[in-house]
């Protein structure tokens, strides 16, 4: 008969083993479906480890306690800028893979901090533009230079490689958008959205869509919401695909798994009514390539 001590020791060993199990602790900024989609993607690839989801604690103290009490073999995966910013301020000693971001957040140069943003490689955007608007020659880029100068230049380079001439228009403040759009009105065959929140946000969307509609300058939207609102088409990473990518980064941070495979699956949306208004002819086989069609 085993003595209680051995039982206790066995239990503690098992418990210790459990506590030392590699763990992915996901902290979503919000509970919206897109965040759940990313979480689902993480779970798909990190099936061999424990994946927990913990809502972002409401107070800094609670967050610091959560981080502090996390086991050593844990990687933190904040989803969204709110959670990423909060965890960055908590300065955890654990590895962090910040996902589902528009812009990189966190300490630069820290090898234990990785970032996965939602930004599409500009060449992907440019190639889709070529596919949908093969006769276009100029593409407008509206941006806030303080926020997106590098991004705009990268996109401009991709557009040139795709045979398009970029037309850059600066809008340092929301009130400058109107003037910048006037500049593009007769110069740009289309307007490409970039994740620059000074310029492209739900509040400025009306101005931009009104401009697009009035002057028949198609907008390439940031997301399905923009396509539904009237952009000609939109491109974004599929949320689960992004989650799978983040999951791979998290496994790598835990020392498990190889190099993360780059994201490939896009969520593409097209608005046929916008296309008709813009006099853009979309062959049926091209429409069939879009995952979502608004009409």
């Amino acid at each position: 008969m085993m003595r209680p001590g051995w039982i206790l020791l066995s239990w503690l060993t098992l418990a210790g083993a459990a506590l030392a199990e590699p763990r992915v602790l996901v902290v979503p900024s919000f509970g919206d479906p897109p965040y759940q989609g990313v979480l689902a993607g993480i779970r798909q690839v990190a099936f061999e480890v424990r994946v927990d989801s913990q809502a972002l604690p409401p107070t800094r103290e609670a967050l610091e306690r959560l981080v502090k009490e996390a086991a050593p073999d844990t990687v933190l995966v904040p989803l969204g800028s709110r959670a990423a910013q909060a965890i960055a301020e908590a300065n955890p000693a654990l590895p962090v893979v910040a996902c589902f971001l528009l812009n990189a957040i966190g300490p630069k140069g820290n090898p234990s901090w990785q970032t996965a943003t939602l930004e599409l490689p500009p060449d992907i955007q440019a190639n889709w533009i070529r596919r949908v608007l093969p006769t276009a020659r100029t593409a407008g880029i509206l941006y806030n230079p303080a926020e997106s100068a590098a991004r705009a230049e990268a996109l401009a380079g991709a557009l040139r490689r795709a045979g398009l001439s970029p037309q850059l228009a600066e809008a340092p403040r929301p009130v400058d958008i109107t003037t910048a759009l006037e500049h593009l009105r007769d110069r740009a065959d289309l307007l490409v959205s970039i994740p620059d929140l000074t310029v492209f946000n739900p509040i400025t969307a009306k101005t931009i869509m009104l401009f697009s509609y009035r002057h028949r300058v198609p907008v390439i939207g940031l997301s399905q919401a923009w396509a539904r609102a009237g952009a000609l088409f939109s491109l974004e990473w599929d949320h689960e695909e992004h989650g799978r990518y983040c999951g791979q980064l998290a496994l790598k941070a835990l020392g498990i798994g190889g190099r993360a495979q780059p994201q490939r699956k896009l969520l593409t949306s097209v608005n046929l009514r916008a296309a008709a208004h813009m006099h853009v002819v979309l062959p049926p086989d091209l429409v069939g390539m879009f995952s979502t069609v608004f009409d």
């Binding site: 919206d32 109107t178 929140l197 969307a205 009104l210 997301s223």
Partner: peptide, 30 residues
């Protein structure tokens, strides 16, 4: 005064969310 492209931005209104939710927040259908 910029008829038809007058902008609520001009009046400020609520500031845009400085996060990824700008991508999937509801945008009024034009």
């Amino acid at each position: 005064a910029w008829l038809a492209i007058a902008t609520p931005v001009a009046f400020g209104g609520s500031t845009d969310p400085a996060d990824e939710r700008a991508l999937f927040s509801d945008i009024p259908v034009f």
